[in-house]
């Protein structure tokens, strides 16, 4: 207990400069019956302590795979990870399975999209939270139960003692997601990965859950990696964001900058495809085509086949560039920003 606390305060003092999580050139290969296929290709990003990072993109672009890789939740027989995942001064990819399982749930925890499939239907929610506590702390069953009830109370569940004795099936979607959050935060992790935590919920419940998530993390100083396809949620809740496409990061930067002035045609396309009452009907800006298959990635820029601005140049490989506090992976971003904005 005292050791972990020492580690935490150590992390706090260096907080000003060092990132909490620093992923460097992460590559992930997965295997199926037709062989290995590259799913993530050179993903690099940082999360600073207390920061909320939004990860956006369409389905199949590698958002969830990035999260699962940080947690190392893929089956080892069918996956290969390469690169560095530095977390609190350690490379998580160099840890043994035992060491990694101590990090999971304690220092980094995760909330999944569909709480019903993440909760065990044959145990009460109280027992499931207690199990998490007992995995990481040497406490009595009674003490663990108390912490579980406290956790349920902290996520705004009225009558936590009664709810702790219920099975997941008797809870509504919003309540289940609250239980998931309670479980993820009960060990006071430094990093919380939230993978589409509100996608299955109604909009009024979504605003409750987002409010709760941000308040709790602010109070406890938890950093959040927030995965979503909803740009508006990112706009309202995150400090920085990255856009992923075809297993790569194609744009990154502070949320307000990226959303008000997206540099990559793909991010631009996503921003402009959101329907609203002010846009004339029939004129929404759809992105033609679909995300390319992993086995048939285009050779150069991966967005090239769908990009309306593509030129011959775009068939060549493109590296991610740093410009100030933003990153961009596009051959033509400079030309495109100067023409679309009509600046001299």
């Amino acid at each position: 207990m005292s050791v972990t606390e020492a580690v935490r305060s150590d992390a706090d003092t260096t907080a000003a400069t060092a990132p909490l999580l620093s992923v460097e050139d992460l590559k992930l290969d997965l295997r199926d019956e037709s062989g290995w296929v590259r799913v993530l290709d050179g993903v690099s990003f940082d999360i600073k302590p207390r920061e909320t990072l939004g990860v956006v993109g369409e389905s199949g672009c590698g958002k969830s795979m990035t999260a699962l890789s940080v947690m190392q939740l893929q089956a080892p027989r069918y996956s290969r990870l390469d690169g560095k995942i530095n977390f609190q001064g350690r490379d998580l990819l160099k840890l043994s399975r035992r060491q990694m399982s101590r990090v999971r749930g304690r220092n980094i925890s995760m909330i999944f999209q569909e709480p019903m499939s993440a909760l065990d239907p044959v145990f009460t929610v109280g027992a499931q939270i207690r199990e998490t506590v007992q995995c990481h702390f040497d406490v009595s069953k009674r003490e663990a139960d108390e912490r579980a009830i406290e956790a349920l109370d902290s996520v705004g569940i009225a009558a936590p003692r009664q709810i702790a004795q219920l099975y997941p099936m008797s809870l509504s979607g919003g309540m289940r997601q609250r239980v998931m959050i309670a479980m993820a935060l009960v060990c006071e992790p430094d990093l919380l990965i939230a993978d589409e935590p509100t996608t299955a919920l109604d909009v009024t419940i979504q605003s409750q859950i987002m409010d709760l998530l941000l308040n709790l993390s602010q109070k406890r100083g938890t950093a959040i990696m927030f995965i979503t396809h909803n740009l508006a949620l990112v706009s309202q809740n995150c400090d920085r964001m990255i856009t992923m496409y075809g297993g790569q990061i194609i744009e990154g930067g502070p949320v307000d900058d990226v959303l008000s002035k997206p540099l990559h045609p793909y991010t631009k396309g996503l921003v402009h495809s959101i329907p609203d009452a002010h846009r004339a009907r029939g004129t929404l800006n759809a992105i033609p085509g679909r995300v390319p298959s992993l086995r048939a990635m285009p050779p150069g820029c991966r967005f090239e086949p769908r990009c309306t601005h593509a030129k011959a140049l775009c068939q060549q490989d493109v590296a991610i560039e740093d410009i100030g506090n933003r990153q961009i992976r596009c051959h033509r971003w400079q030309e495109l920003t100067s023409t679309t904005e009509g600046s001299p």
Binding site: S172, M175, T204, S207, A232, L233, D256
Partner: peptide, 26 residues
């Protein structure tokens, strides 16, 4: 009104502080 307010919007930082109505309960 509450539904409208709960619907997230892309907004610049200054506008983000708009008063949001968060409905309690389900």
């Amino acid at each position: 009104e509450a539904l409208r307010s709960a619907e997230p919007e892309i907004a610049a930082y200054q506008q983000r502080s708009r008063e949001r109505i968060i409905l309690q309960g389900e």
